[in-house]
Design a protein around this nucleic acid. Sequence first.
DNA 1: GTCTATAGCGTGATAGAC
DNA 2: GTCTATCACGCTATAGAC
Lengths: 218, 218
Amino acid sequence: MADGETKTLTKSQATRQAILHAAAGLFHEKGYAAVSLRDIADAVGMKTGSLYFHFDSKEGLVEEILTLGTQGAMEASMAAVGALGDGADPVDKLEAVFTAHTCFLHDAEDFASGNLKMLQQVPPAIRERHVRQERAYADYVSRIIDEISATHGLAPGIDASILRMLTFGAMNWSISWYDPKGRTPRQIADQLMTLVRRGALAAPQSGPPARSKKPSKV
Amino acid sequence: MADGETKTLTKSQATRQAILHAAAGLFHEKGYAAVSLRDIADAVGMKTGSLYFHFDSKEGLVEEILTLGTQGAMEASMAAVGALGDGADPVDKLEAVFTAHTCFLHDAEDFASGNLKMLQQVPPAIRERHVRQERAYADYVSRIIDEISATHGLAPGIDASILRMLTFGAMNWSISWYDPKGRTPRQIADQLMTLVRRGALAAPQSGPPARSKKPSKV
DNA sequence: GTCTATAGCGTGATAGAC
DNA sequence: GTCTATCACGCTATAGAC
């Protein structure tokens, strides 16, 4: 809301935001190359040339959209983990990441999910810059899983890096499925966490705690 | 290998195949709209116009590629299940699907995986036709999961349709990840199956077999 | 079957009026 | 800030020679 800002500044930035959102929606729907600047201008009620007052090029526009998506997802996850406090159980941290990530994916779909779909379509220079951002996010999650491995132990046969890959794949793909109707992001994240708790942890928190075999040596 | 075919027919079809493979590779790498017919022609050592002897249009070309990918994945899964015989345990069927699907995804990457990436980029008419194909595949897998639910039972809190969505998401996304190196498709499928066996089934086959509830009636 | 040549169109981007 | 007008280019697709 930020009511204190100057009107003129707010006005121009409002147009900028409108362009960003319209472009993100179109890119997400049709793909990067299939959307022309004329399409974007039409969507916000402008003429093609006017876009260049706000953005240097089509590539500059898409790069800003990509950054908003990737950074947003990572920040949402980190904020959710931060809210747990310093000494939180890493399993709870992972659950917070799952929920925050999946919710962000659906709430900011054009940016976060469109992001994932568009990465392969943009020029290589832009793509490479963003792989670094995603790697930072992946490393962050890997550290949480390592904490879990150290404190709780992972189930026999479960590899930490593949676990991270599979779980994020499961979440990221949830938007692509043809029938997500009736399932909230929270439900999807909860189901995934249930699967991981029972299936990937040596010491499941839900389910019968009584075990006699395979002591989880940390 | 069908040796009996005429040489002239084989020759022309060989060119067709070369075009299909080159186009699939380029589409997968750069996206549908970003690849021009000139790019494809260059890749197979032809001139742009010559492509039209083998294909009606760019759209016709991409549609054939999409079909090869979707049908191939489904047929690979069905063949693997069929090889188990008629009275097979549905859990084994699911494992066969996981392995066949993941292996096909990596072996025929340009068709199967490129397929998944390109679906959002092709004209709506083509896309809609292919959603039907994918639905048939999804229904096939859903039936297997329903069998598991009926014979073994699912773990408390696990929903069959979300389970299908999450597992296929996990597999499909495995190609997009920036670091699949050192992980074979089999390993990925095995890890996923381990996760599902322990996490989603009421009667895990790996792990302590000593249980008193929910007898696994086959 | 493959070539050359080209038609017809849409694109990203720029320049300057207002 | 937004407009009009336009340029230079690349695209899909076609026509006809060989």
